[in-house]
Simulated scan of single mutants.
Amino acid sequence: MDLFSLSWSALRAAVDGLTDRDFELPSGCAGWLVRDLVCHLVIDAQDVLITLATPTDAEPTRNAVTYWEVVEPPTGEDPLDALTVRLAAAYGDPGLLRFHLDDIGSAAGRAAVLADPNVRVGTREQVLTARDYLDAYVLEWTLHHLDLVAHVPGAPAPPAAALTRSRTMLEQLAGVPFPPALPDSDALRIATGRRPPTDEEHARLGPLAERFPLPIG
């Protein structure tokens, strides 16, 4: 749960450090500008608040790793993706979007700190402990932090501990470890299809390269 706070605080700080011009740059999410990604983070923060306020007595059905599912790669036709782009454009002034993320993001961060780690919560028609739910979001925050800074020179990278934990979760999801020589950030980008491997990386991955990407949702 500490990694949730660490990764979320680092991501919000990275957003806060963006210039207005940075919001018009492409992000690491295909088809999304940085402003679209930041708008998505607002929606993510809302989901965290809703989930932590949705306790249940039902038995857990997922954990931090199985919360994620391998899904079809995005096509840009998903209605929610299209809505995110329209919402981001509607903000107009990047300062308003930055303020909204800080406002609701701070609330989500406080809710996570106050949450009982053993309470069961419901989301996406699944049940997890709050501990597992917040652990799952370390991967979400870390991947989107990589997306945020993909084309922003000098922007801060995600915390090393969050990168390592996210790599471990993806390895568990894939059912096989990634080559140790592959840095965490590169492993995460390649495994999730955010970029193709170089020839050298493809050679290191061997047969594993044929199993990528692992788009998750």
Rank of each mutant, 00 (worst) to 15 (best):
Met1Leu: 13
Met1Pro: 11
Asp2Cys: 03
Asp2Val: 04
Asp2Arg: 14
Leu3Asp: 15
Leu3Arg: 15
Leu6Trp: 02
Ser7His: 08
Ser7Val: 07
Ser9Ile: 03
Ser9Arg: 12
Ala10Met: 04
Ala10Gln: 09
Leu11Met: 12
Ala13Pro: 05
Val15Met: 02
Asp16Tyr: 00
Gly17Ser: 11
Gly17Thr: 08
Arg21Asp: 14
Arg21Gln: 05
Phe23Asp: 04
Glu24Cys: 12
Glu24Arg: 13
Leu25Ile: 00
Ser27Trp: 05
Cys29Phe: 13
Arg35Thr: 04
Asp36Ala: 08
Asp36Ser: 08
Val38Lys: 04
Val38Arg: 02
Leu41Gln: 10
Leu41Cys: 12
Val42Asn: 10
Asp44Ala: 14
Ala45Arg: 04
Gln46Met: 08
Gln46Leu: 04
Asp47Asn: 09
Asp47Tyr: 09
Val48Cys: 06
Ile50Arg: 15
Thr51Ser: 12
Thr51Asp: 04
Leu52Glu: 08
Ala53Trp: 02
Thr54Met: 06
Thr56Gln: 05
Asp57Met: 10
Ala58Trp: 03
Ala58Pro: 03
Ala58His: 10
Pro60Val: 13
Ala64His: 12
Ala64Met: 12
Ala64Phe: 13
Thr66Trp: 06
Tyr67Trp: 15
Trp68Leu: 06
Val70Glu: 12
Pro73Val: 00
Leu80Glu: 11
Asp81Phe: 01
Ala82Glu: 01
Ala82His: 01
Val85Met: 02
Ala88Cys: 09
Ala89Arg: 15
Leu97Asp: 11
Leu101Gly: 12
Ala107Val: 00
Ala107His: 08
Ala108Thr: 00
Gly109Ser: 06
Arg110Thr: 10
Ala111Gln: 06
Ala111Ile: 01
Ala115Trp: 03
Asp116Asn: 11
Asn118Pro: 01
Val121Arg: 03
Thr123Phe: 09
Thr123Asn: 07
Glu125Tyr: 14
Gln126Lys: 15
Thr129Ile: 04
Thr129Asp: 07
Ala130Cys: 11
Asp135Ala: 14
Ala136Thr: 11
Val138Phe: 05
Leu139Ile: 00
Thr142Tyr: 00
His144Tyr: 07
His145Ile: 06
Leu146Asp: 07
Leu148Asn: 05
Val152Ile: 07
Pro153Asp: 15
Ala155Arg: 10
Pro156Ile: 14
Ala157Asp: 13
Pro158Leu: 13
Pro159Gly: 13
Ala161Trp: 03
Leu163Met: 14
Leu163Gln: 12
Ser166Glu: 06
Arg167Pro: 05
Gln172Lys: 15
Gln172Asn: 15
Ala174Phe: 05
Ala174Asp: 12
Gly175Ile: 08
Pro183His: 04
Asp184Phe: 00
Asp186Lys: 00
Arg189Leu: 07
Thr192His: 03
Thr192Lys: 02
Gly193Gln: 08
Arg194Val: 07
Arg194Pro: 09
Pro196Gly: 07
Pro197Phe: 09
Thr198Asp: 08
Ala203Gly: 06
Ala209Cys: 10
Ala209Gln: 09
Glu210Cys: 02
Glu210Val: 01
Phe212Ala: 14
Phe212Leu: 15
Ile216Trp: 12
Gly217Pro: 00
